[in-house]
Design a protein around this nucleic acid. Sequence first.
RNA 1: GCGGCUAUAGUUCAGCGGCAGAACGCCUGACUGUGGCUCAGGAUGUCGUGGGUUCGAUCCCCACUAGCCGCCCCA
Length: 440
Amino acid sequence: MSTLKAVRGTRDLLPPETAMWNHIEATARRVFARYNFGEIRTPVFEDTSLFSRSVGEETDIVSKEMYTWEDRARAQSEKPQSLTLRPENTAGVVRAYIEHKLGETGQLQKLYYIGPQFRRERPQKGRYRQFWQIGAEVIGPPSAGSESPLRDAEVLEMLAALLDELGITGWTLHLNSVGSAADRERYNQALRDALIPLAPKMCADCQRRAVTNPLRVLDCKVPEDQPIIETLPRIADSLDEDSRQHFAAVTAALDASGVAYTLNPRLVRGLDYYTRTTFEFTHGGLGAQNALLGGGRYDGLSEAIGGPRAPGIGFAIGLDRLVLTLQAQQEQAAATDKVDAYVAPMADAKDAAKLAAMNAAGLALARELRRAGLSAELGDGSFRLKKSFEAADRTARRIVILGEDELQSGILTVKDFATGTQTKVPRAELAAHLAGPSKQ
RNA sequence: GCGGCUAUAGUUCAGCGGCAGAACGCCUGACUGUGGCUCAGGAUGUCGUGGGUUCGAUCCCCACUAGCCGCCCCA
């Protein structure tokens, strides 16, 4: 019989690793708050059509990577509904924006989310079937300034600030504009036409892509294909005047705010809803999954799923990958934080009544310390003192010994592991003593 | 969906067609109210699952499952 395990592509996050996750999430919340973003939490599953209509019917995500099931009807009159675990969160946020008529407020909505997403892909480094994303969206009616290139620049600048604050070094911002939906259609056709004579000279993958997904040819990494790729039409040449001006304004604003970026005319993104500005922050050391985060503008998404005109821009950070990057960067995750005190009750283990009484006294003392705001671990009176010390040294900065003497006198024995000094401390002063720094 | 590599103690990994190994961690003691550094002892386990070859398989073969890495695609 096989034992139960986390299903393929999912995993448990345990201490001390979770400390890193909490640190990243807390940093993101702090940074986002400075930019006036508020948190949104949307359901982890939605009506399937939300994703097919937003992400794109023909994308790999929708066509073969979604966890979709038919929710059974509970009444004869009820129709079964096709539901899907969210493969990304932007669609859900825009759905909520429409559902709650946030556009009617006339205000720009600045929303961020942190949560799990689901795609049924083959797991590998930095890629899981349940993966975590931190993302944010700026969306609103055009009258609120949602189309302004200033929003693009602000979002990018915020991301640079977040990565810097997290201590991620060596990231690169790749920037491009894919233009309007019409621009993209035009470009796609131009690319197809250009590839007809060229594709036979390219690698096998490109020959296939030329037919199935010409934009992907631009991503080809085969060295021999690069000269050919250089000759292909550039999307910048297919942009209409509005998109061109918008992009120029974004880069100008980034220049003014000192955010470094690399223009990458080959950066095309996999989701259908992207328009105009698209971007990606990459980092080495992530293997084939070198994208830390990606995003872009989606001026037509709201309308595509039946909402009002609501241009927006957003991004999603792969939290799993961010953790990998930070772990690789830090030699060793910082030593796990030790608690302020280890309360070690001592009693004769053979005397059940005394043991119970001493343990109760230990629990009360630990409670006292915890109520004073200190972190404390509690030992067991049946332990020999040596064992208590060993356990305490692993988990706490100091040990507080609670034996018969201490209980009667109300004066506790405290030993500081950093200095090795042992002192007697009256119970009334204990919390203050434990809160203080180590001293010789 | 496709390809390569891997699966042995709590962890990281050696190993060999014939009694299952190391390091770290864990437990006990030297030390009955004192940790770290020592020292002496101890327990680790369906050798991923199922089948096959063999007198005998943890080892060789096949299948399956899972993990890692890559492809596709993507955060």
